[in-house]
């Protein structure tokens, strides 16, 4: 993206007067980056940093938790995407990965854990039980989806989703973080 920046190179005797749109004084952002000068906003920088180091809350409920554990193991290794440490305490976590069925008895605990997480926080719902209640949707004790309890950012379908799908969901969250202006995010490889 070409961003025209207003760089004036001071000369002997002070700043030059004249037309600020003097193009031979301006350098594009790419030219600056090639010379090792990066321009960004603090907001973008923090989002970039947060996207690459999201710490999940260890919150496996049911079968999808086992696929999530397999995603952390050496074959699929999600720590290379920044999800390095699973925090046991919600006070230290960024992302709540709801993996499994939420039951009526567990619902107050899910809400409490979500409120105990500090801002900014996100929620990934893994598996059809967390998305909409799944095969247990008409049971007397199952909550029909995590988004009835907490606001969900990314949905990963599957029963259970393969570890590759879980990693895709996590990268979707990273893309969502980097582009908050977009309503629906299709993951690009930025």
């Amino acid at each position: 993206m070409a961003l025209k920046t207003n760089i004036r190179f001071p000369q002997r005797g002070g700043m030059p007067e004249g037309d600020p749109a003097n193009t031979h004084d301006l350098l594009t952002q790419e030219e600056l980056e090639s010379r090792g000068i990066l321009f960004t906003s603090l907001d973008k920088l923090f989002r970039w940093g947060a996207g690459w180091s999201l710490w999940p809350l260890q919150f496996g409920l049911a079968c999808c938790a086992i696929e999530m554990i397999c995603t952390t193991q050496s074959r699929f290794d999600m720590s290379r995407f920044g999800y390095e440490v699973f925090r046991n305490s919600p006070r230290q976590a960024d992302v709540m990965i709801v993996a499994g069925t939420i039951t009526e008895k567990m619902r107050p605990a899910v809400e409490l854990l979500y409120h105990q997480m500090p801002e900014p926080k996100w929620v990934i719902a893994i598996g059809s039980c967390a998305i909409s209640g799944g095969p247990f949707v008409d049971s007397y004790s199952v909550v029909a989806g995590a988004d009835k309890v907490v606001p969900v950012d990314v949905y990963v379908p599957g029963c259970p989703p393969r570890p590759e799908a879980i990693i895709d969901g996590m990268l979707q969250l990273k893309a969502k973080l980097s582009h908050p202006e977009r309503k629906q995010v299709v993951r690009d490889d930025k």
């Binding site: 409920l61 049911a62 499994g100 069925t101 039951t103 008895k105 567990m106 605990a109 095969p135 247990f136 008409d138 049971s139 007397y140 004790s141 199952v142």
Partner: peptide, 14 residues
Amino acid sequence: IGYLHRGMEKLLES
């Protein structure tokens, strides 16, 4: 226990 009680036995009846 019961935090993952999904009522499977009742579901299977329907």
